[in-house]
Design a protein around this nucleic acid. Sequence first.
DNA 1: GCCAACGTTGGC
DNA 2: GCCAACGTTGGC
Length: 157
Amino acid sequence: MRFWVMKSEPDVFSIDDLKREKKTGWDSVRNYQARNSMRDDMQVGDLVLYYHSNAEPSGVAGVAKVVGPAIADPTQFDRKSDYYDEASKKDAPTWLMVTVGFVEKFASVIPLEALKAEKALAGMPLIQKGQRLSVMPLSKEHFVKVLSMAGAKTSVS
DNA sequence: GCCAACGTTGGC
DNA sequence: GCCAACGTTGGC
């Protein structure tokens, strides 16, 4: 199993929204690298750190899980969507999404600042300067470290 | 709201 | 294929 960070603006879709809805299609990703991660490397059962961006504070808000494989993102075919992609073909969709399920909301958000200050997380892709991917991998060790910082209930075997 | 970082587009 | 212009992300 692999471990991931997935980012969402809480004004758009927060960990509380995920908790209420139980699961959601991770649509609207329009970055090839993030798409390729979902298509090639994500598997059902993988665990996800749920990151709030453009938030107060920005940071890891909880844990989610990949519960459905990469399928066509319907927003690319929806003319009314901001994410409509005229060039994408139904039989060969450009953009994909996985389905993500709620696992746990942390007692408090682990702010980006705290992640950067933690020596054991050096090298974690999320905290590298200039990274803007909405879906990115991290190591099991880093994942477990963030769980312990959060006092999380989730455990990794 | 500012602006640095960086991906994408398009002229050549 | 280069690279300037432009758009987006996201911390602050």
